[in-house]
Structures are given as structure tokens and as C-alpha cells.
């Protein structure tokens, strides 16, 4: 049984609760990641922010705009596909006034408004079975790795688990 510390990524991107969602979107798009832990000023994990959280925000905000509902439904279907990329994409296009305000609201939102609080975490000394269980049963894609005091030391993702099984092919 492999241990979390054997597979985890040590250089982990994290955000602060006060970071703007536009920064999150750009970071996700540039680095090709879909989620990251949120830490306080002592580097303790207090949440996780993911693409899904941004999607949910877009969906909930769009409910208010009845006038352009038809178009927003289409927009929503389109933007559901990749809201992170679409936020950058939007800047290159001319939009209706109403939509400008809509997207600005989304972009200026803060990490702490939508992050998942008190996320599931694991310790680096544990076997990876607990991480796998969390991913399968709770449906998370990534699990922050923390010390006993809750400080962030790494992250373990689905890709890391799959990679570990891949390498066991060579060990056989």
C-alpha cells in the first residue's frame, strides 16, 4: 500500500479567502487545473475552491436575469462547459450591457463566498486507500494533505492515483 507522501504533489497552488474569482479563473486556465485548496495566513487549509463552485455561482446568478433568460439559458449551457476558459474568452467579445454587469459580478466575487469550507483532508503518512475512498464515495477530485495542525503540505489528485497504478505495471 503506497503512502500519500509517495504520490502527493508538494508544490501546491493555493488561494486566500479574499482572492477574487477572476484570479482563480485565470490561474486555473493557465495551469490547467480545476481546483485548489484555500489557506489562512498560517497556511492552514480552510477550504477548497473548484471550477464546479464557479459553475454553481453562474447558475445561481443567472436565475435573476429574466429579461434575457432565453439567451442566458444558451449562455449557461455553453458556459457550463468551461466557465474558467469562458471568463477569459468573454473579454475578447462585445457583449450586451446587461451581460457585462453579470460577468463582472461573477469575476469580482471572492473565494470565501463560494469555497467549500472544512474540506476533507488526509495526512501524508496515511495509506492512499483513504484518499481513494474519498474520491470515489465523496466524488472529490483532489484531497489536500495536511499536518496534524492542519497546515498544507501537499495535494493528492485522481491523476496521481492513476499514475501510481500505471507505474506498478513496470514493477511487475
Amino acid at each position: 500500500m503506497k503512502l500519500v507522501k509517495d504520490l502527493m504533489t508538494v508544490k501546491v497552488i493555493s488561494f486566500r479567502p479574499s482572492d477574487k474569482l477572476s484570479k482563480v479563473a485565470e490561474t486555473f486556465a493557465k495551469l490547467g487545473i480545476s481546483g485548489a485548496p484555500v489557506v489562512d495566513d498560517q497556511n492552514r487549509v480552510i477550504g477548497v475552491i473548484s471550477e464546479r463552485d464557479i459553475i454553481e455561482l453562474i447558475k445561481s446568478k443567472s436565475g435573476i436575469k429574466e429579461r434575457t433568460e432565453g439567451m442566458l439559458t444558451e449562455t449557461l449551457q455553453f458556459f457550463h462547459i468551461y466557465p474558467v476558459v469562458s471568463i477569459e474568452f468573454r473579454r475578447t467579445m462585445k457583449e450586451l450591457d446587461l451581460e457585462e454587469k453579470f460577468w463582472k459580478e461573477i469575476e469580482d466575487g471572492k473565494v470565501e463566498d463560494i469555497m467549500t469550507k472544512k474540506p476533507l483532508t488526509v495526512s501524508e503518512k496515511e495509506g492512499i486507500d483513504k484518499s481513494i475512498e474519498l474520491m470515489v464515495v465523496k466524488g472529490v477530485n483532489r484531497v489536500p494533505v495536511v499536518t496534524e495542525e492542519g497546515e498544507l503540505v501537499g495535494i493528492i489528485t485522481r491523476a496521481d492515483i492513476i499514475q501510481s497504478f500505471s507505474q506498478s505495471v513496470e514493477e511487475n
Binding site: 439567451m71 455553453f78 476558459v85 469562458s86 475578447t92 457583449e95 451581460e99
Partner: peptide, 17 residues
């Protein structure tokens, strides 16, 4: 899908559909 729409450089979102 995203790459395809980005490449097309449409000017208005409503053109995407």
C-alpha cells in the same frame, strides 16, 4: 468545443449557438 468557438473569433456571445 471551446477551442473551436475561440478560434472562430465571433464578436457576440449570441453568435456562439
Amino acid at each position: 468545443i471551446i477551442e473551436s468557438v475561440k478560434k472562430s473569433r465571433i464578436e457576440k456571445l449570441s453568435q456562439a449557438k
